[in-house]
Design a protein around this nucleic acid. Structure first.
Length: 193
DNA sequence: TGAATGATGTTT
DNA sequence: AACATCATTCAT
């Protein structure tokens, strides 16, 4: 028995929408003193600053969005609505601002820890939504910019879905018509149908 | 099942 | 004033 290696940084150095689709089925995992938690990625959205008014980096570089401009294969985690964190994976080459927002997971490991962090028991409510899954995995601003090869956050390869749905993105006011949200056909774990 | 709303604080 | 959200409440 051998441990699976995380996806290498080069995996993320590709067109963002391609990575957004390929990440479906992969496993996002966090390790902390509190324990391990992981889930299968079942919903993603692409954000490409150069052509996308909804991207945080659309208007240029700031302290908050700096990781989006950095090396692929790192986390970009932002604080929003006064109480929530949302987790992205940075894509494209260093100097190009783009990322994939992770919007939902199918919980796999550490459900008790997730429930404790979230304050809910219902597995359906643990990771269905970008802020929910970030809280369930203990991901916050401290990990913005962290590599996705560990030691705190990891993304492992997984079984890709047989068929993928593309829709418009959720919760934005600009760039509404771009069909850059993806999820597996029939997945019961997505944040919205 | 869906609309309305308050919780919260950072960014523009 | 807006925001890549969520939980709760109230109405269908």
């Amino acid at each position: 028995m051998s441990a699976q290696a995380p996806l290498p940084p080069e995996y993320f150095d590709r067109p963002t929408l391609e990575v957004a689709r390929d990440l479906l089925g992969c496993v996002l995992m966090s390790d902390s003193p509190a324990g391990r938690a992981s889930g299968r990625i079942v919903e993603t959205e692409g954000y490409i600053a150069r052509i996308d008014p909804a991207a945080h980096a659309y208007r240029g570089r700031t302290v908050r969005n700096a990781p989006m401009w950095g090396s692929p294969g790192h986390a970009y985690i932002y604080f929003t609505y006064g109480m929530h964190y949302c987790t992205n994976v940075v894509t494209e080459a260093d100097g190009v601002a783009a990322a994939v927002l992770i919007r939902a997971l199918e919980p796999l490991e550490g459900l008790d820890l997730m429930a404790e962090r979230r304050g809910v028991e219902n597995p359906q409510l643990l990771c269905a939504g970008p802020a929910r899954l970030s809280q369930a995995l203990g991901l916050d601003a401290r990990l913005s910019g962290a590599p996705l090869q560990g030691p705190d956050v990891f993304i492992y390869p997984g079984e890709p879905p047989t068929e993928i749905v593309a829709t418009t993105r959720i919760g934005i006011s600009r760039g509404k018509d771009l069909p850059w949200r993806y999820y597996p056909v029939g997945s019961p774990w997505v944040s919205r149908k």
